[in-house]
Amino acid sequence: MTASHDLAARALAVGYGERTVIDDLDLQVPGGKMTAIVGANACGKSTLLRAMSRLLKPQRGQVLLDGREVHSMRSKELARTLGLLPQSPLAPEGITVADLVGRGRHPHQKLMARWSRDDDKAVADALEATDTVALAERPIDELSGGQRQRVWIVMALAQDTDVLLLDEPTTFLDVAHQVEVLDLLTDLNRDRGTTIVMVLHDLNMAARYAHHLVAMVEGRIHASGTPADVLNAQTVRAVFGMDAVIIDDPTSGAPLMLPLGRHHVAEREH
């Protein structure tokens, strides 16, 4: 079990250059739980994750990890506690899965030290935990999109952090692989107590897998709380500008959102 960490944003304002994307945002990430951030395109979800992993410097306000400003922490120290999987990472041509996963060990290695047994073990554990051992020597460019996404998560696992931020880990995956990735993250959360913050586009997946749901609108947090509290017709309207019906998911008990478009909806088409 890992220590539970306290990650929070206080009166946070971030943006690019002169432009402010997020203004005056407060967020408390529950430790040891899974949090999902949802919101329309360009509402600032990635920007929020970048600020929390200090890729972006706040214009105002702070991001606190266990009460300390992340921007005042040493970068390796932070990287041993908090990991980030960005929306579009790059893989050099020809890199093998084992090599890529091994690079997740960077924050645990001394400047000139050799590859250690701990590193070997962390890489082996991460590959085994995710059933990717058989892929270890394959070049990344020969994998399917789903396998590749999995390998990136394996790299994040090898980094072995107590807090893991993931930007759209399920985008481009078919429904079976989406479920697989979210199950994997749930295992990680249950077995190691890892605090997980993930940006998801699928509201129903978010409601099912997250303990805590955060809905963003134009750089602000519109609503946050348990999925049952947050996911309702008003929230969907405010976040996506779309009507919806919410029912109980018979398989999980979580709320289930059914979108209402202009067509193929019985009462609307008369």
Partner: peptide, 16 residues
Amino acid sequence: NSMALGDEVAAGLGVK
């Protein structure tokens, strides 16, 4: 090696 994965991943791995 870290920067080969993109600047964001590298920064996330603790590289300045």
